[in-house]
Amino acid sequence: MNKKNITWHEGKVMKADRQHLNGHKSALLWFTGLSGSGKSTISVEVEKALYELGIHTYRLDGDNVRHRLNHDLTFSEEDRKENIRRIGEVSKLFVDAGILTLAAFISPLKADREFVRSLLPKGEFIEIYVQASVETCANRDPKGLYEKVKNGELKGFTGIDSPYEIPASPEMIIDTEKQNIEESARQIVDYLKMKRLV
């Protein structure tokens, strides 16, 4: 496709207008961490709490997105990068729509997370590192993936034989070895209130 034939078409309703209509700011809460750390579970709880406060939200989950939008991608290094690129662009659209967006993706590489951050204005990307050791995640093993790794059925698994780059300075750290789901969700909602996003 020749990109010279593509023109950006501006509208008359801007993000600020949508935020005003909704009665709150929009931003992207980016949950990152190992498989089994609690990203998806906490994002579900946070979305429920925000809904009860009357906040317009949408939640994007790694596994859910791979069922449809990214069903054509494998777990190769190149496709993992493309997975995050696509969801970053989709998240940007949701934020532009005035929606407080929650995205739960392992997103193991700092460069990929920083790419998503670069898509949004300062203050609209909130990196939430959901912290738990490999040992803890393996003991939880909600999807049975660590067992498959142990049995040699799964290769290139993040945290085992594929790297996970711990965020150097995330906006928030949620330690799921020390606090439960409700406490974790409350910490995030309190942060959003403090930043006057909700």
Rank of each mutant, 00 (worst) to 15 (best):
H9Y: 14
E10V: 01
A16I: 03
R18A: 02
L29R: 11
L34M: 09
S35N: 14
S35H: 14
G36Y: 09
K39C: 04
T41I: 04
T41D: 06
E45T: 10
V46A: 13
V46R: 13
E47H: 12
L50G: 09
Y51K: 12
L60A: 07
G62R: 13
D63P: 05
R68S: 14
L69C: 04
D72L: 09
L73N: 13
D79P: 05
R80N: 04
K81S: 14
G88Q: 00
E89M: 11
K92T: 05
F94V: 01
V95C: 10
A97T: 02
I99E: 06
L100G: 08
L100C: 13
T101W: 04
L102R: 13
S107H: 00
K110P: 00
K110R: 15
R113Q: 11
F115E: 00
L119S: 14
L120V: 02
G123K: 13
E124D: 10
I126D: 04
I126G: 09
I126V: 12
Y129G: 06
Y129C: 06
Q131C: 05
A132C: 07
S133C: 03
V134G: 07
C137W: 04
A138N: 06
N139A: 15
R140P: 03
L145E: 06
L145I: 03
K148E: 11
V149C: 08
G152V: 02
E153Q: 15
K155P: 00
F157K: 07
S162K: 13
E165K: 08
I166S: 11
I166L: 05
P167M: 00
A168C: 00
M172Q: 10
I173H: 08
K178N: 11
I181Q: 10
S184R: 07
Q187F: 06
I188Y: 12
D190T: 13
M194R: 15
R196Q: 15
V198D: 08
